[in-house]
Amino acid sequence: MSLSIIKPGLLDTIQDMGRFGFSHWGINPGGAMDRYAAQVANMLVCNDAHEAVIEMHFPGAQILFNQNALIAITGADFSPTINDEKVPLWQPVVVRKNTVLQFPKLISGSVCYLSIHGGICANEWLKSYATNLKVSAGGLSGRPFKKNDEIFFKENSIYYAGLLKEDNNLHVLPWRADVQKTYKFPHEISVIKGNEWDQMTGNSQFDFIENNYIIHPSSDRMGYQLRGSTLQLSSQLEMISSGVNFGTIQLLPDGQLVVLMADHQTTGGYPRVGHVISAHLPKLAQLRPSDCMKFRLADIGHAENLLMEQQRDLQVLARACYDRLKATVC
């Protein structure tokens, strides 16, 4: 039960929902950039939402399936194909052994997820499979995929091979996750004011909300560097290091902003002018370098309600996926 990497992509790693409980040693949570897409990928193949998945950036990897597998591809659209036949996103797909999955063209989005029914066998480090590249731990030996890597999957609990018709290389199951609500208005990102918001000048507060920001090419899994109008503090602020989170927006000394992403540090010493709301982190994770974005202010109650709603929809989806697959294979 395995797949092989014929050709690695730009950055293919094993990720999950993150590594929590070890911040006192400076160990950051890491995990999937788009946790929503990663969870949906798992749900479509009837995995636990926290199961390890493969995260890919464009160009994605070329992957050979050594066995039949039930998979789902979610998140960014890199126009995936199996032996040159198009594979739809956000749907469960049965693929035949000895077929090749490729991602020839970037259509939209930034990070793409591949889930495999049963889950991936990966190195667990401190209760998580997420790859920590800094200390080379978790995932696949703590590193991105290389040519000829073999990645094993766990045992099936559902017999799906029977769904493959004689000569077909793949069988797309006829249901799709509706994720429109999560990704609508992709360039509008809601934020809660940070503790140092009030330290910005009135003009800078205005600029923060009114102006567009562009994601700089130097952005990565640690943080998005933004380019836009220069923001200022009303007075010089020397801060000692304190906690930060996925989505924290820091104002750098040069007046530009950085949004901390999945591989963020546990602590930081720059003014925290805002925090992206959890429900909008998936949208942000799918923005690419050179993409434009705009911030909107939200209050914490609204942010919490949006997140609860997103979570309720996910629970409904998980149940529906499970029921449909059971009904189809039995």
């Binding site: 006192h24 546990t266 602590t267 609860m308 979570q311």
Partner: peptide, 21 residues
């Protein structure tokens, strides 16, 4: 409650709002 970040003069907590609520 998922994680506790201890710094010079602050304690931050990461939490899952869905589990808290």
């Amino acid at each position: 409650l998922k994680d506790i970040i201890v710094a010079y003069s602050s304690v931050s907590v990461y939490y899952d709002p869905i589990l808290v609520k």
